[in-house]
Design a protein around this nucleic acid. Structure first.
Lengths: 185, 185
DNA sequence: TTAAACTTTCAGTAATTTCTGAAACTTCAA
DNA sequence: TTGAAGTTTCAGAAATTACTGAAAGTTTAA
C-alpha cells in the first residue's frame, strides 16, 4: 500500500469531511483508502498507512461494515482478513443516503407520530401540533420519495437526473400521459 | 413562553437530533422552540425556556441566522429583538438541504477537480484518479439535480414526489414526449 | 453625556467524542 | 494442547466541541 501524494490528499480530505458525512475522521480515511486502493487491503496495512492504532482501525472497519460500505474479502491461503468496497461508487452513495435517512429522519418520524396521537391540551399545543404535523408529512414524503428513487435503479435514476429542466416540462404534460392516476389537485 | 410537555418533548428531540443534522444540541433546541412558538420570541425567553446561558443563546441564534432558518422580527415599541422562523416548513427544509450541500459536497467537489488536473504519476495513481473521477461526476450530478429540483418550486416538487412509481412509467415514455432533447445514451 | 436595556464576544471550563494500547479473545497449524 | 498470527474490546488519555458568565460593545431615550 503506497500512499502517493494524490492518494494522501484524497484520504486526508475524506477524513476531514468524515464528520460532516456522519462518521468520524479515521472512518472517513479508512473508507477512502479502501475505495482508492485497487487491491484488497488488510487491517494492519490500513493502520500503518494512516498511522492509527490497530484498535481504532478495527472499530472503524466495524463501523464501515455496519454502514454496508466495505466488506471482508477472503484471500485464499491468507490468514488475515482483507477489505474491499461493498460495491461501486453508485452503490456506496446510495448506502450513505439510506443509512443517513435511518439515522436522521426515521427517529424523528417515529417521535412525531407519537406526539401527534396525544390530544392537544390547549391552544398553544394545538398550534405546535399543527407545525409538527407539517413536519411529519414532509419527512414522510421525503422518505417515500427516496425509496421510490432507490428502486428505480441506477440507470433510470441517472436518466432522471440528466433530464435536467426537462423534468419540469414533463410534469406539465403528465396528466396527458398518465391520465387519472396520481393526479394532485 | 410556556413549555408544555408536548413542546418540551419535541424541543428535546430536536436537540438530540441536532448534531446529526449539522448543528449542535442547543441550536437544534432553539430552532424547534422558534418554529413551534406561535409568537415571536426573545433571546432571553429562549435562554430561560432552555436553561442555557445568554451567551450560548446568542451564538445559537447567530448560527441559525447563518443557515437562514430564523430571522429577526422587530416588534414596534420593544427594545429587544425577537425571532421567528425564516419561512414555512418547506422553506426551512430546503434551506437545510442547501446549506448542507454547501458544507458536505461543495468542498469535496472542489478538491476533486484539483486532483483530477494532475497527471497521474503511475499506475496506482491512475487507478485512484479513475475512482475520484467517478465520485466527482456523481457529486456533480447530485448538485445539478438538487438545483434543478429547487427551482422547480414547491408545488411542482410536491407533484413529482407524490407521483410515486408513476415516475418510472413516465421515464419510459419520455422520448415520445420530449423528442431529441436530453436523451441519454 | 449618561445610563439603562439590551447584545455579543471570548477566555476558560465542562462535556463529549475519538483514539490508544494492553489484555482478552479467536483461529488454525503442528 | 500449544503457540503463533491474527482480531476485538474497553478503560483511560487525548483531542475536540460546546457552554458559561463576566466583560466589552451597542443602541436608545432622556
Amino acid at each position: 500500500m503506497k500512499m502517493t501524494p494524490l492518494i494522501t490528499s484524497a484520504v486526508m480530505h475524506f477524513g476531514e469531511m468524515g464528520s460532516r458525512w456522519g462518521f468520524n475522521r479515521t472512518v472517513g480515511q479508512i473508507l477512502a483508502l479502501i475505495v482508492l486502493n485497487e487491491e484488497p487491503i488488510s487491517a494492519q496495512e490500513i493502520a500503518d498507512a494512516l498511522n492509527i492504532s490497530r484498535g481504532n482501525t478495527s472499530m472503524g472497519l466495524k463501523e464501515l461494515q455496519s454502514w454496508r460500505l466495505v466488506k471482508q474479502h477472503l484471500v485464499p491461503g491468507e490468514r488475515k482478513e482483507f477489505f474491499i468496497p461493498a460495491g461501486d461508487i453508485w452503490t456506496l452513495a446510495n448506502r450513505v443516503f439510506e443509512e443517513r435517512r435511518k439515522r436522521e429522519i426515521d427517529p424523528t418520524l417515529s417521535l412525531l407520530r407519537d406526539l401527534l396521537l396525544d390530544e392537544p391540551a390547549n391552544g398553544t399545543e394545538a398550534g405546535a401540533q399543527n407545525k409538527l404535523n407539517e413536519i411529519h408529512d414532509l419527512l414522510e414524503s421525503i422518505t417515500a420519495w427516496s425509496e421510490e428513487l432507490q428502486n428505480l435503479g441506477p440507470e433510470k435514476l441517472n436518466t432522471l437526473m440528466k433530464l435536467g429542466s426537462g423534468v419540469g416540462r414533463m410534469l406539465d404534460l403528465k396528466d396527458k400521459i398518465l391520465p387519472g392516476k396520481n393526479s394532485v389537485n
